[in-house]
Amino acid sequence: MIDGFLALLTAFLVLSGAGFALAAAIGLNRLPDLYTRMHAASKAGTVGSGLLLLAVGVHAGDLPTFARALAGFFFFVLTAPISAHLLAMAAHRVGYPLHAESVRDEMKDYDKRI
């Protein structure tokens, strides 16, 4: 009974993780510029791989494995925004432009003021 429940939970986690990864990939191709693509990769992509890792922990069903999977999940969730932020900062400082439809860029004015 509990095994069946764990298997169904694992299946749900696996499918939702893969779905988020697919959404991130679609977003990477459909979104118009670098900064909006970063939204897709850093949120949906991270949640996707994190859910798949959690699924491993749930499927194994013992505490050490689950603790390791949880540690990995935390690691991914905490490092993904840092790398996205670093890349966005580097790209903006170097001067890669925002998409033409962007409504405002207050950072540009700030850079000029320095």
Binding site: F20, G27, K43, T46, V47, L98, H99, V103, E106
Partner: peptide, 26 residues
Amino acid sequence: ELALSAWKVAVLVVSPRMDLKPGIFA
């Protein structure tokens, strides 16, 4: 918030007409 944001990005990406107003604010 993490779950909500991943869900919103996924919904935005698969919707047929993306209505974007991107920008940087201080």
